[in-house]
Amino acid sequence: MCRWLAYSGAPILLDGILYKPAHSLIDQSLHAKMGVETTNGDGFGLGWYGTHTITPAVVRDIGPAWSNRNLQEIAGHVRSSLFFAHIRASTGTSVQQTNCHPFRHGRWMWMHNGAIAEFHRVRRELALAVDPELYLAIEGSTDSELMFYLALTFGLEEDPPEAVARMAGLVERVGHEHGIEFPLQMTVAVTDGQRLWAFRYSSQRASRSLFYSTRVETLRSLHPDLEFLREMSDEARLIVSEPLGNLPGAWNAVPESTYGVVQPEGDRMDGFTPVPA
């Protein structure tokens, strides 16, 4: 499987999140504690929104994140108010640049941890459900990218929770028709550059780990002596596959079968149920 993080808040240097925490995403690329694999070295990706464009920049590579000097150089010089980072452990598809997350379509970005079970058996049927015009934009061979384009087909740009629910419902229906007991395992992050959605769901109701950060103002009251908390904006939010450190009170598990949205009008969390296809 994989590890990922998503940040939303006031613009910050990327390395403050990617490299500096005790159990940063870069550390997790070698020493993950909650994933299926300890090492996530089958590529990485970074996607961020700048101040002058509505589409995100995306950088991806097939090498491990822990030794990539270009990644470190970018992280030390780029500021963003919304960015994704992903380290990959392949579940069977090729280690190639087009299979690294995050995936981009227009202003949208998507990344995933998990798998469609026995993907090789259901891939053709799922691919045929993608809108033909959107299908032309698929570059790689992963289940993750196909999930993204199915969600786009089902209206991601208008209603992300409904579109992801319809995607999950289709994957489960097709999987069950092929005799697969638990077709889907996913934690997903998706954004349009303004709002950020995160989903935690699996057919087995035993989903991969996912956490969200406690509000900064609450952490300041719990830890008034920590200088870095005084420098963070009140609107800063992190969603991560596993905590970036062991600061008491900083991390909260996303409940099973749940999605949340980080947005200017106020964050919220709700239950997630696939829509039968």
Rank of each mutant, 00 (worst) to 15 (best):
G193S: 05
L219P: 03
G106M: 01
L156F: 12
R205V: 08
A137F: 14
R166G: 06
E125R: 11
Y212C: 09
I138R: 07
Y7K: 06
R220V: 01
F84G: 12
S24D: 02
F148Q: 07
H178K: 06
L146E: 07
V122Y: 10
L238G: 06
S257I: 01
S213M: 02
D15V: 00
L150D: 03
S29K: 07
I74F: 00
V122Q: 15
A163R: 01
M34T: 08
G63S: 10
A277E: 15
W4Q: 13
G175Y: 02
L184E: 06
T38A: 09
Q185E: 11
T258V: 05
L170S: 03
W197I: 11
P160V: 04
F211I: 06
G47Y: 02
F103L: 12
Y212T: 10
F44K: 01
L244M: 06
W197C: 10
M1W: 13
E181Y: 11
V275C: 15
T218H: 09
A127H: 15
P56T: 06
E139T: 05
L82K: 05
P248K: 09
T53E: 09
A32E: 00
V164C: 05
Y49E: 07
Y19G: 01
R166W: 08
E145M: 12
V240I: 05
V254P: 04
Q194I: 14
Y135W: 12
F44I: 03
L126C: 13
H223K: 08
L222S: 14
E256M: 09
E118S: 13
R195S: 15
G175T: 04
A253M: 07
E265I: 13
W110V: 04
R237G: 09
G155P: 01
W108G: 02
D225L: 13
V59N: 02
T214S: 07
G16N: 04
S94K: 09
T39L: 11
V122K: 13
E125C: 11
I138G: 04
P255F: 07
Y7P: 04
S209K: 03
V254C: 01
F119P: 00
H176F: 05
C2R: 03
G271C: 14
